[in-house]
Amino acid sequence: MGILEKISEIEKEISRTQKNKATEYHLGVLKAKLAKYRAQLLEPSKKSEKGEGFDVLKSGDARVALIGFPSVGKSTLLSTLTKTESETASYEFTTLTCIPGVIEYKGANIQLLDLPGIIEGASQGKGRGRQVIAVARTADLILMMLDASKQDVQRDLLEKELESVGIRLNKLKPNIYFKIKKGGGIAFNSTCALTKIDEKMVQMILHEYKIFNAEVLFREDCSADELIDVISANRVYLPCLYVYNKIDQISIEEVDRIAKKPNSIVVSCNFLLNLDYLLEILWEYLALIRVYTKKPGQAPDFNDCLILRRGVTVEHVCHAIHRSLIGAFKYALVWGTSTKYSPQRVGLNHVMDDEDVIQIVKK
């Protein structure tokens, strides 16, 4: 029995098992088995996968993966937002490899990857699914392109495909401490009331992974699926923006309904509708900020900025300018919204805001 058959058998058993108190332990073990087999499926076999991946060098300030079914407008979006021409046509599977483009926005270079259309069963290696998914795991953000007239079906199928290969969309990492030990059995503890899992299920799931000595601490009320994610240790938690294209083909009431969904934006690539707003939202989701530098006695250079992530400190700014700067750092003067008054004298731990100006004073 091959891995695909085993996965199929377990999925069938899960779907026909009634979900109640009596079957929850059985379901927990089945889910652990399923996660194990799926992990094996994604490990590239040394013979068949060699030279088949889309090895695109990571460049720019952030990487965005464009995912969607064939013919939803991914290539049109890439050609519109970047200077890269991706072949577009009215037939399916026009794009057969990964095409990188660069969005130049607010001084940042955002790498946009146009990936071949995903088909149902991609997580099991159908189409170029496995390579598409491998590239998607390296992105900072998933841009899921959907046809506004078929949106619910497409979205559910794509989420299912990504979920089955360990890509978690718009979710936080489960707050579970887990460490394998050499002896002492399984030490189980929790800092809150657990309603979705108990100690017996934790032990059964760990035993399925052949783990008999470990420390497990639940810091929040998590489920068996979330514990399996933590044990697997190969899950990727990515923000996802759902882009509904071809809104010119549906009613205004339907456009309004889709636009109100969380993490969603409506566009029309053919009529260039709402693409400016898409770039604004993209900037927000990537959590990028601009920091300008200033030399003593001179005006700030607003033509050149450092592109950093939200939450960076003065120490990160020093590293971005030059790694030897920290050794000579005395203090910094900062102008902008992160300060109480301008300029404010700050240390290395001061957190920067978008469009702050910084002057480094050396010893």
Score class of each variant (00 low, 15 high):
residue 84 T to N: 00
residue 206 L to G: 04
residue 290 R to T: 12
residue 298 Q to N: 12
residue 268 S to W: 05
residue 211 I to W: 02
residue 274 N to L: 09
residue 165 V to G: 00
residue 308 L to D: 02
residue 250 I to R: 11
residue 174 P to G: 12
residue 60 G to C: 13
residue 235 R to L: 05
residue 147 D to Y: 09
residue 321 I to P: 02
residue 290 R to G: 04
residue 18 Q to A: 06
residue 178 F to V: 11
residue 339 T to P: 01
residue 272 L to F: 08
residue 193 A to M: 04
residue 337 T to N: 11
residue 68 G to H: 10
residue 242 Y to K: 01
residue 268 S to D: 12
residue 12 K to E: 13
residue 108 A to Q: 10
residue 283 W to H: 12
residue 232 S to Q: 15
residue 58 K to Y: 08
residue 91 Y to R: 00
residue 132 V to P: 04
residue 167 I to M: 10
residue 136 A to F: 03
residue 274 N to P: 03
residue 69 F to L: 15
residue 236 V to T: 15
residue 328 A to N: 09
residue 328 A to S: 13
residue 121 G to R: 08
residue 116 P to M: 11
residue 162 L to W: 00
residue 355 E to M: 09
residue 241 L to D: 03
residue 114 D to Y: 02
residue 360 I to D: 03
residue 190 S to Y: 06
residue 178 F to T: 03
residue 114 D to G: 05
residue 291 V to I: 15
residue 358 I to A: 08
residue 263 N to Q: 14
residue 6 K to P: 00
residue 27 L to T: 06
residue 237 Y to M: 11
residue 286 L to V: 11
residue 289 I to C: 01
residue 165 V to T: 15
residue 140 D to L: 06
residue 30 L to N: 05
residue 287 A to C: 10
residue 344 Q to S: 11
residue 163 E to Y: 14
residue 230 V to C: 05
residue 342 S to P: 00
residue 11 E to F: 06
residue 107 G to N: 12
residue 335 W to K: 11
residue 143 L to T: 06
residue 291 V to H: 02
residue 225 D to Q: 14
residue 49 E to P: 04
residue 92 E to P: 15
residue 357 V to Y: 01
residue 144 M to R: 06
residue 98 C to K: 05
residue 119 I to H: 07
residue 208 E to K: 13
residue 238 L to R: 12
residue 284 E to Y: 08
residue 264 S to Q: 00
residue 309 R to H: 11
residue 19 K to S: 13
residue 288 L to K: 11
residue 299 A to H: 10
residue 47 K to F: 13
residue 301 D to P: 00
residue 79 S to F: 02
residue 129 G to D: 03
residue 241 L to E: 00
